[in-house]
Amino acid sequence: MSWTKICPMNEIPVLGARVVRHGEVDIGVFRTDDDRVFALNNRCPHKGGPLSQGMVYGDKVACPLHSWKISLVDGKAEEPDVGQTACFAVKIENGDVYLQLNP
Rank of each mutant, 00 (worst) to 15 (best):
G54V: 05
E79C: 13
D59N: 14
A86I: 02
E79Y: 07
S52M: 02
K47D: 14
G48W: 02
A86Y: 02
V73M: 13
K76W: 00
P80D: 10
K76P: 00
K47G: 14
V90S: 11
T85V: 12
C44W: 00
A89C: 09
Y57M: 10
V90I: 13
V73C: 12
V73E: 15
G48A: 06
L72R: 05
H66N: 12
E78R: 09
Q53P: 03
G54L: 01
G83I: 06
A77Q: 09
H66R: 03
V61K: 06
S52L: 01
C44Y: 03
G48P: 08
S71H: 10
H46A: 10
G75P: 09
D81A: 14
I70M: 04
R43P: 08
Q53Y: 10
A62N: 12
P50I: 01
T85G: 11
A89R: 09
R43L: 15
C44V: 02
W68M: 07
A89Q: 13
Y57A: 14
G58I: 02
G54P: 12
S71L: 04
L51F: 03
K60I: 04
C87P: 04
Y57F: 13
P64L: 04
V61R: 03
Q84P: 08
E79G: 11
S71G: 12
D81C: 10
P64A: 06
G58R: 02
P64N: 07
A86W: 05
F88W: 08
G58S: 10
N42F: 02
C87Q: 05
V56Y: 03
K47L: 14
L65Y: 11
P45I: 00
A89H: 12
F88N: 07
W68K: 03
P45R: 00
G49E: 02
H66S: 10
C44H: 01
W68S: 04
Q53I: 00
V61G: 05
S71M: 05
P50W: 00
G83H: 12
V73L: 15
G49V: 01
Q84Y: 00
G48Y: 07
D81H: 12
E79L: 11
W68L: 03
W68D: 08
F88K: 07
G75C: 12
S71A: 11
G49W: 00
V61T: 04
Q84V: 07
S71T: 07
D81F: 07
